[in-house]
Structure formats: C-alpha cells, structure tokens
Amino acid sequence: MTNRAVISTDEAPAAIGPYSQAIKVGNIVWLSGQIPLVPETMEIVAGDISAQARQVFSNLAAVAKAAGGSLDDAVKLNISLTDMNNFGAVNAVMEEFLNAPFPARACVAVAALPKGVSIEVEAQLAV
C-alpha cells in the first residue's frame, strides 16, 4: 500500500493536461512545472519576465502551501527558460520568494514552453 497523495489547490492554476499540481509521498512533494498563468483567469500574466517569474513562483508557493509546506522547504528547483538572457532577472525574483540556504537548482534553455511562455519552474520539497 502506498501513501501517495494528490495535492490540489484553487490558489494555483488548474492542470492544463493529464497531470496533478503535485504528488506527495511521505515527506517528499513533487510540484509539477508552473507557467505564468493567473489562477482565477487561466490567462498568461501581463508583463516582462520578472512579472512572469513572480506569477510562476506565486503559483508554486500556493501548491507548496497546499502540501503543508512552503518554498523554503524546496530541496531542488528545475527552471526552463526560452531565453537565457532572462537568467539574471529570474534569479532576482527567486530571491524574493526563497531564503538562504537556497535549494539545489538546474536552469536550462529550451526551444519552447506550453502556451508560448518564457519560463516554467518545477520543484521538489521535503516537508
């Protein structure tokens, strides 16, 4: 028997495909990638990469809260960017949402992301 739990909240965008917002097994939570969708409208947030990154991290924070944790419980982040020139701006926004010691992280450039957005971030938490 497994203790696998599906995590879901209206405070983050609904899944736009066949996946859960997060899955929790024991004290580990895997948060699905978030893009800059506004939960209430399911529209892409207006603004530059900083505004988009803030929406992404706000969405992740909402899912983390629903799982009984926070982004400070993150042990690993995976960031996908369509333009690595946005790396510095995303780092600055990340520092608004997480406190040191920061989690392990990967940041990769990708050709495209869902709905044509510039950023997607997924996280793993230990809560």
Score class of each variant (00 low, 15 high):
residue 2 T to R: 13
residue 4 R to F: 04
residue 6 V to F: 14
residue 7 I to T: 11
residue 7 I to R: 00
residue 8 S to V: 14
residue 11 E to N: 15
residue 12 A to G: 09
residue 13 P to T: 10
residue 14 A to V: 15
residue 16 I to S: 10
residue 19 Y to R: 07
residue 24 K to S: 03
residue 24 K to C: 04
residue 25 V to S: 14
residue 25 V to W: 08
residue 26 G to S: 03
residue 28 I to G: 02
residue 28 I to A: 05
residue 29 V to N: 00
residue 30 W to C: 05
residue 30 W to F: 15
residue 31 L to V: 07
residue 31 L to E: 00
residue 31 L to F: 05
residue 33 G to C: 13
residue 35 I to N: 01
residue 35 I to A: 06
residue 36 P to D: 10
residue 37 L to M: 09
residue 39 P to W: 03
residue 40 E to G: 14
residue 40 E to P: 01
residue 42 M to C: 15
residue 47 G to K: 13
residue 49 I to D: 02
residue 54 R to M: 15
residue 60 L to W: 01
residue 61 A to V: 05
residue 62 A to Q: 10
residue 63 V to A: 02
residue 69 G to Y: 00
residue 72 D to K: 02
residue 75 V to I: 07
residue 76 K to M: 10
residue 76 K to C: 03
residue 80 S to E: 11
residue 86 N to E: 15
residue 86 N to T: 05
residue 92 A to M: 12
residue 92 A to H: 06
residue 97 F to Y: 15
residue 100 A to K: 12
residue 101 P to S: 13
residue 109 A to N: 15
residue 110 V to W: 10
residue 111 A to D: 08
residue 112 A to H: 12
residue 112 A to F: 13
residue 113 L to A: 11
residue 115 K to S: 14
residue 116 G to A: 07
residue 116 G to Q: 11
residue 117 V to H: 02
residue 119 I to H: 02
residue 123 A to I: 07
residue 123 A to N: 02
residue 127 V to S: 03
residue 127 V to Y: 00
